[in-house]
Each structure stands twice: as structure tokens, then as C-alpha cells.
Amino acid sequence: MPNFAIFGGSEEALTKMRGGFVVDVSHPCNQALPRWVSTGLFQQIDTSRLSNWGNVIPEIIDLPGNAADGGNVWMAPFDWGQTSVTYRTDLFEVEGEESWDMLWDKRYAGKLGSLASGADAWWCGAIKAGVDFDDIASDEAFEKIAAVMREQRPLIRVYTDDTTTLEQALSSGELTAAMTWNSSAVLLQSEGIPVKFAKPKEGALTWVCGVVIHKDAPNVDRAYDVIDSLLSVQTGEFMIGEWGYGHSNIKAFDKFDEATLQGLGLSKRPFEILEAGHFQQPQTQEWETRMNETFEQIKAGF
């Protein structure tokens, strides 16, 4: 078994690695990739050393900032999916279509939950505020998003990076709706809890995550082994079937019929899903810091 260091958010992991923490492999998402690469903390991935590379869906390799020298990449894409609203179908009465407004619904004040990390929540706020991701860095966008986040804050019972907390609260009825990733809904459904992963009319937040190798990785060979196994069909089948995440290996989807995939909000053509939602875009370090600073202040009540 590999040793895992688990973080509340990838930003925390990056901070720790900048402080000298060395790992073999770590797991950022597309939105953070160019910033991660610019820290100089990672090495290029020699794709010829990965036996499963040929089956990786090309569109999700070709992400902004991912191309390195000579066909190498910085990040091997591994999983993709959505951030949306998981809600209790028996406790939450949807008015009209499913929408991000559900997490701003005053009827359920104190019974709504949210992911604590700005890397999800702020972007969802942007969708709610109607901000185009192309303009997310403007001052105007900052103000608009901050306003909706402040409006939401008194309604939120708990902000947490621990998805188990949200899942347990949804299952007990402490929360009626929460911002989650695909897996929370799939896990709760498998336990027989009446929940649904909403398809908000404004579109969900979509992302691709992957694995990168640290420049001083002590076990480079094993790092490649880990990555290759993460990209394998078996891993993919588990990711899709048990957790409801998209996988990067096209062959992993063969075991599932179109209807099952659709039910999970997945497809063999990831970009259909990713583009139908709002796909996260890389931002500058200044933006990231400003966003986190603002969001943390809002969560603290300011």
C-alpha cells in the first residue's frame, strides 16, 4: 500500500510541498495545473513509461498548461466529474427545475451544507451569480461572487472539506442539500438514502484532475507504477461503478451501458459533459490568493 497524505484542499498540499514536504505523486486539478507547474516542484511525465497511456482520452490530456517537452506531459489525467448539489428527494422540495438556487433557498436555512474549499465553492458561486468563467478574474466578478457567497453564508450549517461529514449529515436529515462531488450522491444512493445529484439548469461545475510527479520524488519507478495502475481499466471500472467519477481510460467505460453512465452524469465523450457544465479555468496565483482570502473572510462572517 502506498502511504497517503490527505489534505482538505489541493492548495494546502501545494503549500506543504512548497514548505519542503516531498512526495512521489500528488493529485491536483486542471484549474491549478499551470500554477503548480510554475512552482518548479514537479517533473515531466515520460508517457512512454505508461502502458495505459494509449487508452487515455486525448481531449482530457490536452488541457491548458499540460503540454511539456517532446510529447511529455506534466499531469496524467485520472478522474473528471462535476461539483453540483446533492439533495434529499424526500426532504427538499424542488421548485421548478433543479438549480444552484437550491443552495440559496431560505426555506432550508441551517439545513444546507457546502464544501469549504474555494476551489469548488467560489466557482459554484460564480455560476450562481451568472459570472462567465472568462471574466472570473475581473473586479466586478469578485464583487458579484462575494455578494452571493455572503448571501449564502447565514443559510449554511457547515462548511467542510470532509465529504463524509456532508454525507452523514445528508443521510441523517441534518442537511437537506449540500454542494458535493459525484461520489457523495452515489455512495448515499448505494446505502438506500433517497438523494439525487442535481443537474442544475445553469450547469454544474466541471473539472479534470490528474497526477503529477514531484521533482525530487524518491521512488520515481514506483511513481510511474502508481500512475499506470491509476490509469488502468480496473481502476476506472471501480471509479465509475463505486464512486460515480469519470475516468481517463476510455476502455473503462465499456463495462457500463449508456443508461448507467447517463444516470451517473458521465459519458464516454467527457467533453460533452465538461462543456455542458462550466469547466474550470486556470487562474493566476494572485487570483487564487485573493479568492481564498475573500472567501475565508466571508465564511468567518465578514
Binding site: 484542499g9 492548495e11 494546502e12 503549500t15 449554511i156 487564487e288 468567518a300
Partner: peptide, 21 residues
Amino acid sequence: GGPDGAMIGNFIQLQFGAVNN
């Protein structure tokens, strides 16, 4: 603590983590 119970220690931790300051 939830949103209303956050203390200065949490904010200090955030400066060294997500806020990166």
C-alpha cells in the same frame, strides 16, 4: 464550531494553508 464558531487559531492555520500568506 461551524461558521459562527471559528476562532483566531483557525484563521492562523488558513494563512499557512489555503490563503497562503
